[in-house]
Nucleic acid binder design. Structure first.
Length: 503
RNA sequence: GAUCUGUUAGCUCAGUCGGUAGAGCAACGGCCUUUUAAGCCGUGGGCCUUGGGUUCGAGUCCCAAACAGAUCACCA
């Protein structure tokens, strides 16, 4: 703390003046809050008699002082409410210092105060708490941005610089009410999903974040080191293999909400740590999983938004089931007019070149088809759509398709042009699984940094026998973006990763 | 990682052709017993992101760096 602004110095001086009045600017005792701002706003018009003695606490956000009377705004966890203070009612004796000195002079915007009083409506129709007693609860030493909303709902002096908002999220939360709403919806999303899973009897579990082998996905990991064991460890890129081991162990349904860590680029849809939910259900296949996912999303989103719809940019997304199902080949046919089925690698390359898709020599047929899909189809999948049946090369943990040669039983759920969920009929044939890992090893030898690592312990688990199982992963951050209408992942993370600022 | 844009008071932003830095809010002082975007009147407040350069003179022009945003690449 090298340089203090004029306003910061003044607040520190006020802190000492409060002490010199014999008042503790950071009191210890609990304050007996019995009401929130929203309770009064919701209930006063119906039952005003319930609001003759309300005790509120929160931040002082605005002072309008008119001599012996003053209006102020109090912000608590439910929002703002106006309060009214009258000098001679607050200070009936000769000593007017509580009003004149403590409130008028030494209370700054941002300070925490507690009040007791009764609710009434002013001549201008504003619901207000008439203060009978006033208590100082905590001093704020930094000035807050002062954001005002006028009668037309127009915001003045908005605090909107993304860097400032993300680096000081607490200020963002204090000053921008819409930010809180996003995180409340995020919490509800996780809570309602958890309830849906629990109601079906599936078990919430926790698996290791620190892993000696980073399996279960194709991505570059963060590396760390355990000192006592003197061994390298990785932060998990996925929890898939551990969850399947629990299915081997005899649970019929397990799920985990948790952070995954990927050492890759950051942008408005990627943060190095992100939250996923993965769920594995025994004796099911990917067709069953599609039905479960659309049922769950319809119910959960209706509970959160009060409707199955969500507006994102220009698109109104409807989450009502059933969702459209298209195989990857059908989707490519529909959006490009090109049929990839039965085509040779050379024919696929010619098509890619005609569409100006960038290629490199290492790409096989599966990767080429994936490129075509990613470049030409994804952006068109606005309403919830299941894309099914992927080329086997890209998907080492999924079971070969029951009837289509060269494909696996996999679906991804696309919404608003982005992948939201990924699911398989899980591969439970340990011999096949070993071969698939070995194929990945060959990719790694050719320099693919994201190729999956062979996990001997996982293979051994499969050798003990895993029931037929379907598994699913959903990106919670991206789903939150969809239901809150946000287009940047940073808006749905309290503390998105930022570069450190050099002093 | 690439390209473009931005960084000026606590906050939101102006700043013309290169000539000693501006507004509103916030702060400070005064007046004021139901106001409301900010009650009224007045006053103070600046490492113009950082470092170089051009120039008699740089917030402004040039070069570099830091951080951020947008677009792209990679991924979920």
């Amino acid at each position: 703390m090298s340089h203090l602004s004029e306003q910061e110095i003044i607040r520190r001086n006020y802190l000492e003046e409060i002490r010199s009045m014999g008042i503790d600017p950071y009191p210890h005792a609990a304050f007996p809050v019995n009401m929130h701002a929203a309770d009064i706003k919701d209930g006063f018009a119906i039952n005003p008699e319930n609001f003759t003695s309300v005790t509120l606490a929160g931040r002082l956000m605005m002072k309008r002082i008119m001599g012996k009377a003053a209006f102020a705004e109090l912000l608590d966890c439910t929002g703002k409410i106006q309060i009214y203070l009258n000098r001679d009612e607050l200070c009936p004796t000769e000593d007017k210092s509580l009003y004149n000195t403590l409130f008028k002079k030494l209370c700054d915007i941002g300070d925490f105060i507690g009040i007791e009083g009764y609710a009434f409506t002013t001549q201008t129709g504003e619901l207000t708490v008439h203060v009978r007693s006033f208590h100082f609860l905590a001093k704020s030493l930094h000035p807050l941005p002062v954001v005002k909303v006028d009668a037309d709902g127009k915001v003045h002096d908005a605090f909107l610089d993304p860097e400032a908002r993300y680096r000081k999220r607490y200020v963002d939360l204090i000053v921008n009410p819409f930010v809180k709403d996003i995180f409340v919806k995020r919490a509800k999303l996780i809570s309602y999903m958890r309830r849906y899973f629990d109601d079906h009897g599936w078990l919430e579990v926790e698996t290791p974040v620190l892993q000696s082998i980073h399996g279960g996905a194709a991505a570059r990991p963060f590396k760390t080191h355990h000192n006592a064991l003197d061994m390298p460890l990785f932060l998990r890129i996925a929890n898939e293999l551990y969850l399947k081991k629990l299915i081997v162990g005899g649970f019929d349904g397990v799920y985990e909400f948790g952070k995954m860590f990927r050492n890759e680029g950051m942008d408005r849809t990627h943060n190095p740590e992100f939250t996923s939910v993965e769920i594995y259900i025994a004796y099911k296949d990917y067709i069953w999983m599609m039905e479960m996912v659309e049922d769950m999303l319809e119910k959960v989103i209706a509970q959160i938004n009060g409707t199955c719809e969500s507006q994102i940019g220009d698109n109104l997304i409807n989450f009502r089931k059933p969702y459209r199902r298209l195989s990857m080949f059908e989707a490519i046919q529909e959006y490009t007019g090109f049929n990839v089925e039965g085509k040779s690698e050379e024919e696929l390359r010619i098509f890619c070149k005609s569409k100006h898709i960038e290629l490199d020599d290492s790409m096989g047929k599966g990767k080429l088809i994936d490129e075509i899909f990613g470049e030409l189809v994804e952006e068109h999948l606005i309403q919830p759509t299941y894309i099914t049946d992927y080329p086997i090369e890209m998907t080492p943990l999924a079971k070969k398709h029951r009837s289509k040669e060269g494909l696996v039983e996999r679906f991804e759920l696309y919404i608003n042009g982005k992948e939201i969920a990924n699911a398989y009929t899980e591969l439970n044939d340990p011999i096949d699984q070993r071969q698939r890992f070995e194929d990945q090893l060959r990719l790694a030898e050719r320099g693919d940094e994201e190729a999956m690592v062979l996990d001997e312990d996982f293979l051994q688990a499969l050798e003990y026998g895993m029931p037929p199982t379907s598994g699913l992963g959903i990106g919670i951050d991206r789903l939150t973006m969809l239901i809150t209408g946000q287009e940047a992942i940073q808006e749905v993370l309290f503390f998105p990763q930022m570069k450190s600022v050099k002093e």
